[in-house]
């Protein structure tokens, strides 16, 4: 690999640990995830609702508070000055990297603007915290930036409730990216937007990533958006990474049955036949199924799937997947190779 990864997580486990009336409940929302993201790439994280996407993102951001507890593993950033721990930052360290280097567009970001503060004031709050400058200067800076987003200058004088949902979404994205951070986390930035606005937000994210050379970690359950934006996609199921590959491979040659189901749920124009849908729902994460967590819903489930957890194996070109169908193959390959030699 040419450059060191800008973000690397190793065997990350983060649980929601709650205790009510003496009953301890542990929701294993992120359970042993390892991933590494290269500078400048758009890394998509996909999976059904409740599979732990937002939780994973909070951990990658280093932003967790009880009941969410890091149990094991590490997250490290590297902005070209050697790796730094993302989970053990103190307040000053957080303040020094947030927004100037690492930024975040939260899920439901239409509601993250203070309802009693003018957009211009909110921008000033966020900018001047990290780059002290007079109000006039932030105004100039924001005006120029908003223009790129197709937002008129008048937006600065507005309060959030005066803007449409799509405008608020764009304002939040602008707010998160105005200081050209190297690493941007975006949690469902296009959900709850109509198709036209959705397309403009996708274009916008693409442009920000291109213009600033930023790395974008994009969460969305919408495989259409993933196909449009991501360079590489990780598929999460029940707190585990089940498959990861470049976007083309994920769509053309997915190996995990769950990924095959996910892309099967992507509507295409030719496709007029009612699609078979997978029965059941993702499991509750306080008591996940044994073995492969997908086995209760998997059409190919074998006996071994119920008891033994499939390891995440690396196939050709960094394609990773965790399924006994693949492990078997890899085993056969490994066994047959000496025979060939």
């Amino acid at each position: 690999m040419a450059q060191p990864p800008i973000l690397e997580a190793r065997d990350l486990k983060a649980y929601y640990i709650t205790e009510a009336f003496g009953v301890r409940r542990t929701v294993k929302a992120v359970d042993g995830v390892s991933l590494s993201i290269q500078p400048g790439e758009i890394y998509g994280i996909a999976g059904e609702s409740g599979c732990g996407k937002s939780t994973l993102l909070k951990m990658l951001l280093g932003e967790f508070e009880p009941p969410l507890t890091p149990v094991e593993g590490t997250v490290a950033y590297d902005f070209g000055e050697g790796p730094s721990d993302a989970l053990g930052m103190d307040e000053a360290e957080v303040a020094s990297i947030r927004w100037s280097r690492v930024s975040y567009v939260p899920q439901g970001s239409m509601h993250v603007l203070n309802p009693v503060r003018r957009i211009g004031d909110t921008f000033h709050d966020f900018i001047s915290t990290h780059r002290p400058m007079p109000r006039r200067q932030t105004n100039e800076m924001v005006k120029a930036y908003l223009a790129e987003f197709g937002l008129r200058e008048g937006v600065l004088q507005s309060f959030p409730h005066q803007l449409s949902g799509g405008m608020r979404q764009r304002v939040t994205i602008a707010l998160a990216t105005i200081l050209s951070p190297k690493l941007i986390f975006a949690d469902e930035p296009t959900t709850a937007l109509d198709v036209v606005v959705q397309r403009s937000v996708i274009q916008l994210l693409k442009r920000i990533q291109r213009d600033h050379g930023s790395t974008l970690v994009l969460i969305t359950h919408d495989m259409g958006v993933q196909a449009n934006l991501a360079d590489r996609i990780a598929v999460l199921y029940a707190g585990k990474l089940v498959e990861e590959a470049d976007t083309r491979t994920i769509f053309k040659a997915p190996r995990h049955p769950y990924t095959q189901h996910l892309i099967g749920s992507l509507p295409t124009l030719e496709d007029k036949v009612a699609r078979q849908s997978l029965p059941g729902r993702p499991p509750a994460l306080d008591d996940p199924p044994t073995g492969c967590r997908f086995h209760p819903r998997c059409p190919y489930a074998m006996d071994i799937c119920k008891s033994v957890e499939p390891p995440l194996v690396t196939l050709e070109d960094g394609h990773r997947a965790a399924c006994h169908l693949i492990t078997d193959e890899a085993d056969h390959a490994a066994h047959s190779r000496p025979a060939l030699a």
């Binding site: 939260p106 993250v112 203070n114 966020f126």
Partner: peptide, 12 residues
């Protein structure tokens, strides 16, 4: 949401 967001952005 807006207070959490301001905190994540490390506002004073």
């Amino acid at each position: 949401d807006y207070v959490r967001f301001a905190e994540i952005a490390a506002l004073p």
